[in-house]
Design a protein around this nucleic acid. Structure first.
Lengths: 199, 199
DNA sequence: TTATGTTTCGAATTTATGTTCGAAATTTAA
DNA sequence: TTAAATTTCGAACATAAATTCGAAACATAA
């Protein structure tokens, strides 16, 4: 039988492991990350990792699930608010921008990990993918609504969605050199680019 | 001693191997690609691959080198032409767009591979990276020149470069689902987006 | 034809690393 | 205090896949 406190400690240790794993995954990617490195980084024995997680993939997936859940939950209230599409859209982007600057390492991982992931991990219909789909769906819906109401200029919303996906990606990488963006640049970027393009 | 014809045949076989490797790398990434698969795809024995290349990484690098060389050489004449910055800029993008639609598989690889690549492969200052840097440098230079001449609206050229990097990336992926873009979409995209934003 | 150079590849070798095992350490609760 | 439950982890195991080996096939040129 596990007490409340024990459960909390167990959860805390999971988080410690996830934190260490994030650092390694972010710099090495799924394949090149070894359980030895995660163990070293999180300061547990390698076998202990298997006490908390059943495999390396599970750790990876859990990072994505928790991260995307956080994103979704942070924009949900705004989405369900009563603002006009354009305001909802821009406010959501600003919220996400804020999260990103708070949490560079995590977000760089969230936005880039899916591209380096084996297809098998997508076929299991993971939780994080649902949140991601919901989010993209909402954004595209807002764009379309905004266009039909004349709040946005006439444009192909699917193309614009591609651009936005690319833009968020571009926040982290210039060209393909690995040079993370600063908080200021991020602010500038949103107000400058989104502002000019959509207003 | 190797005759001219032998050299050509050898080069041809290298190309066969690279062609097979591209298919596998593109769908599996560097890590999950096995020499067995490259051998099967290119229809050589596994050991034969080592006769032509010294390692799996070398094959990967050679694909990047040849690809980026091709991009650079295709825009170089335009860059050295006498057009105004804005025209040079847009024409270069159009050229690249053309190459991309001709060569989807290769370009998807060229634009996405660097993100999945171990840092060690970047530390060796590879040839392809030089071409890439030259290209980005030229683009940023054109932007700055165009801004100062009033051909482009006032903007922060470094931010716009980030956007452009992201846009090219976004051509291939919507969100993070692996759904390559069609040739038409690509056309639309360039004329629609670049047109609206820069003109 | 034959000797020399070139190319091919199946099988063996090596290495890296994900996962499991089993015993020890620690914590909990009576 | 002590026994049961929980947590920890070093060492062993298993496997996949990169690379090498060595011999055979093939081509070339005298």
């Amino acid at each position: 039988m596990i007490s409340e406190r024990q459960a909390k400690e167990r959860e805390f240790r999971k988080e410690q492991i996830l934190e260490g794993a994030l650092i390694v995954f972010k710099s090495q990617g799924l394949e090149r990350t070894t359980m030895d490195e995660i163990a070293r980084e999180s300061d547990f024995g390698k076998a202990t990792l298997y006490y908390y997680f059943s495999s390396k993939e599970e750790i990876f997936i859990e990072l994505l699930d928790r991260g995307w859940k956080m994103i979704w939950e942070s924009i949900e209230p705004i989405i369900h608010g009563k603002d006009q599409p354009k305001d909802t859209f821009i406010n959501s982007l600003i919220i996400i921008g804020g999260l990103v600057t708070e949490n560079q390492v995590l977000f760089e991982f969230l936005f880039t990990a899916p591209q380096t992931m084996p297809i098998t991990l997508l076929e299991s219909k993971p939780t994080w993918k649902n949140y991601q789909n919901k989010m993209y769906g909402v954004f595209q819906g807002l764009l379309e609504e905004g266009i039909s109401k004349g709040e946005f200029p006439q444009m192909r919303s699917d193309l614009m969605m591609r651009a936005i996906g690319g833009l968020f990606h571009g926040l982290f990488f210039l060209g393909h050199g690995k040079k993370p963006v600063s908080a200021d640049t991020m602010e500038d970027f949103i107000s400058d680019f989104i502002g000019k393009t959509l207003k």
